Simulated assay, not measured.
Amino acid sequence: MKKTLSLFTTLGLGIASLHAQEHAQTDSIPAKRSSLLLSEPARAKSFQLDVLLRAGLQTDNGDGSSQAKANLDDARILMSGDYNDRLSYKVRFRLNRSFAPTSQDNGSRALDMALIKYKFGKDLKWSVTAGKQSAMVGSYEFENNPIYEYKFTDYVDRILNLFVVGGMISYEVNPNHSLHAQVYNTTNDSFMDLHAKNGFAVGDLERSNVPMGAYFTWVGAFMNKQINTKWSYNISQFAKGHTNHSISLANKFKTSRQMVYLDLQYSYLGVDHAMIASSAINEFYGRTGDQRVLAKDVNYGSAILRYDQFLTRKWEIALKGGYEIAGARNEDQLGRNFRQNWTYFAALQHKPFHNQDLRFYLGYVGNTVNYKDAMNMAKSQYNRLAFGAYFTIPVL
């Protein structure tokens, strides 16, 4: 593990690459503005400023009782530009997250990305990028514009380290296929801080000498780019002697009137730094204080399906469902599938302007968490009704 990560650390620290496709998550909105603003005049390439916003009225039972409120779901600022055909940059902030620096990478929860990209080689098919960037994981749920996703699954929201400091090198095989290798810090917080902030004791675990990971990703397109794939394998370490592995297979079909994506993933965590399974295991066994430790040999699996369809020129529906499991190999009483998580939403959306990324919506969002009968743990049910709007605003 050390040799593998050391090799890619040497290759990649301080360099990274953006996703080869123009609509990648690092953009969060399409890079070609003609797809958003068809009638907009050409904008200066050296600096572009966009605001991503979703807000509305909602009623939910998030605090255990029904409550109605006005809520700012998401607010982000994206600054980007191209100095020339080789060098570009991106910086994006989440305004409703903490700006306090994280202990492992000296970034912050509010900072999604701060990177520069450099293209080189024949026909500029190679590229490297330095800075904080989105993980090159096979997930169209993550790659989608974040304001489009009314609720993320556990895989994107809690298991993945989404925005990482590290490096990636990419090669564009042809206009439809590209290969990527990315190295990054496994977590944004240090080994000790992650334990302390979340109420876990270190126990017999030791910090990894190389607490880093690597993604190896293929991005493909077929049938005039109507079918897209983003498949990744990941290897990483959080604790010494415990290696993580995961496979993520993202698949998407898109036309001018509809979009469907299916994300499939399986993750094995040598030590459960995602903490979902660990929290349930410690509660089941009644562990507190120094007994409350991160579980070992944990597995997570998920299948996530989303379908968007324009009913007319201005009206569309958005449907999403996700099924996720969590388990542990060394917990005999619990097994590999002791927790099931269902995430789902349905929304009717109105897009008043063809050339603006503005939508009004009326939707229902739900989440159900079940546990194996032997655990005797209460079922968790979340419901939300919401009416609001989201807008990718091209400020400059």
Rank of each mutant, 00 (worst) to 15 (best):
A16P: 03
L18K: 11
H19Y: 12
Q21A: 08
Q21K: 09
E22M: 09
R33W: 13
L37I: 07
E40M: 11
R43G: 12
A44C: 12
A44P: 13
L49A: 15
D50V: 12
D63H: 15
A68Y: 01
D82A: 09
F93K: 11
L95F: 03
D105W: 05
D105R: 02
Y118R: 11
K132M: 10
Q133L: 07
S139N: 00
R158Q: 06
I159T: 11
L160K: 00
Y171G: 01
V173Q: 10
A181N: 01
N188L: 11
D189E: 10
D193W: 12
L194H: 07
L194E: 09
G199R: 14
V202E: 15
V210T: 15
F222N: 05
K225Y: 08
G241L: 00
S246H: 06
V260T: 14
L269D: 05
V271T: 15
A277I: 06
A295E: 14
Y300F: 09
G301Q: 06
R313N: 11
W315T: 09
L319I: 02
Y323W: 11
I325T: 14
G327T: 04
A346R: 01
L348T: 00
L348I: 07
L348W: 08
H354M: 13
N355S: 13
R359G: 02
N367K: 06
K372A: 04
A374G: 00
K379G: 11
A389D: 00
F391Y: 15
